[in-house]
């Protein structure tokens, strides 16, 4: 299946205006983790919090909804959340942990749960894993190149980043700048080129903008845990939903992009294998 195993695909957004205001799209990650926190399904969550420098996120063990909101929004560069899980379980004392990650991070987490070497008593403490759709991820230096060099602006002034309609877009206080997405090629993390997972297939719940209209997110519920927490959050009025059939551009676009990532990566994998290079898949 091109979208991985899932129970339900649905378009959704957070009903809380405070979340909508800071969210990248529908605010699903923030809303879902906040709901899990308030309902004591989790005691805290490892999220990509604000770092010392702009657009350099650092893992944050969020234990309040306010801390979760401080971490809202897509960063496009890596936050090593998996690294923080151990500290969340140890010094922070969390016994039920939520986290959010991109597909490659979830591969690490699921592998850790299968083979908990060096992660004793950590894997079993993960109560909710939210995944985000991801085509590629950039080192911070790449973001700096896009904004400082290609757009002649500066990262410090950027308020929001987005990818859509074939463009890499940034919003500064008074301007919207963009470059064509093809100009970003070659600046992504090297591993992205051999990654075949677009929709975070190993998550409890996956979410991302593709397939839903602006301000909404597409949600794939995957595991029993994920589906039941999501359903409860909807029932509680934290999240509102629309059928995927009723929204544009719909699930078709998600399937198309997921297929293209799989195909493109398979080509790269084959190419590397032909050259005798090791590939992880």
């Amino acid at each position: 299946m091109v979208l991985g195993t899932y129970k339900e695909a649905i378009s959704a957004r957070a009903t809380d205006k405070a979340i909508q205001n800071v969210a990248q799209d529908g605010g699903i990650v923030t809303a879902l983790l906040s709901y899990a926190l308030e309902e004591k399904i989790i005691e805290g969550a490892v999220v990509a919090g604000p770092g010392e420098e702009e657009w350099k996120p650092e893992p944050l063990v969020a234990m309040t909804p306010e801390e979760l909101i401080s971490a809202a929004g897509t960063k496009y560069t890596f936050s090593p959340n998996v690294w923080m899980l151990k500290e969340a379980v140890r010094q922070y004392g969390l016994e039920k942990v939520g986290t959010v990650g991109i597909p490659c991070q979830l591969m690490g987490i699921r592998k850790m749960q299968s083979y908990p070497f060096g992660t004793r008593f950590i894997a079993d403490k993960l109560a909710l894993i939210v995944g985000i759709f991801c085509m590629e991820n950039f080192p911070r230096a790449s973001l700096e190149t896009f904004v400082d060099e290609k757009m002649n602006s500066s990262l410090e002034s950027v308020e929001k980043m987005d990818i859509g309609m074939g463009k890499f877009i940034v919003n500064t206080q008074d301007d919207e700048l963009n470059i064509p997405l093809k100009e970003t090629h070659g600046y992504e993390q090297a591993g992205c080129n051999v990654c075949k997972d677009y929709t975070a297939e190993l998550a409890d719940v996956s979410t991302g903008s593709v397939g839903s209209p602006a301000g909404w997110s597409t949600v794939l519920t995957r595991t029993d845990t994920g589906a039941s927490i999501f359903k409860d959050a909807v029932d509680a009025g934290i999240i509102e939903t629309k059928s995927m059939d009723d929204v544009k551009p719909g699930l078709g676009l998600l399937e198309k992009l997921s297929t293209s990532k799989k195909d493109k990566s398979q080509k790269e994998i084959d190419k590397r294998r032909d050259m005798g290079l090791p590939v992880p898949f």
């Binding site: 005691e43 805290g44 063990v61 234990m63 500290e87 010094q91 922070y92 004392g93 969390l94």
Partner: peptide, 8 residues
């Protein structure tokens, strides 16, 4: 690291 208040 110090421990969190929750852990304490």
């Amino acid at each position: 690291k110090n421990i969190s208040e929750l852990a304490r």
